[in-house]
Amino acid sequence: MEELVETMSRDLPREVADGVTWMSSCLPFHLQDRVIHGHTSTYLAQGTESSILIDTGNPSSWNIISKTLDGLLGDKPLSYVFPTHPELPHTGNLPRLVEKYPDVKIVGDIRDYHLFYPQIVPNLHARVPGDRVDLGGGYEFVIVEAMIRDLPNTQWGFVPKSGVLFTADGFCYMHRPELDDEDPVHLPGECGLTTDELSAPIAVENAAFFTGSALYWARFANDADQVYDRVGKLMDDLGVKIVAPTHGNVITNIPEVAPIIRAGHKHAYRY
């Protein structure tokens, strides 16, 4: 029996870096003998003047997200939304966000959005990698090329001041293979933990399982080293300190986790 209302852990929302709040909601799946959760994270980056929401969460999580935004923004409206790519967990609440904040600007690679959400066309503003959004007080949001992606109109984002890279479906993994599910699920109580707080490290085969499933092309393209060398260079160039994926716990110990994700990606070839 599937419960379709997403919940937010008691530990969230949580400030994971200066000006960046993790406000993931989790979808609980009620199995016969236990409950497991799947992350659909949204993040709010705030400067002194403006704010930007990275991904929108699923429509089923709207009530939580709306309430959390009220708490975090106070009487200020949301200024920007950056949907990383047009899939339901990333864009599903765009119409409701526009209804709640009529002047909000939706920025990013907006190809296809006029077909999927014709009612929000006036709010759409195309942006390309390298473009910057000033949030005030020295905080800004930079659009970055998505180096690991599924849909072609995917972008990543970066907050330079706090060193947080938002990687959409990149750097996702599952660390509970025994739960027998294709999704990056976790146990109740783990929703708001960063990777250095998890009780057990991620295993390579678990990262491989997710990559082979969600990033299907990795099964046929033997280019993991090439891809992750580019990602590593990007992270060095930007000065990334934290990786914030949409589906998975926030990665705070990059030197430990990145090699595992890379090795998992390699294993996914001919999975």
Partner: peptide
């Protein structure tokens, strides 16, 4: 198929997995 939930209200959800 796949891990994403779909927007629906009363209809029964039938998630199925077929090996590629």
């Amino acid at each position: 198929t796949g891990g994403i939930t779909v927007p629906r209200s009363k209809a029964k959800s039938k998630r199925i997995a077929v090996d590629p």
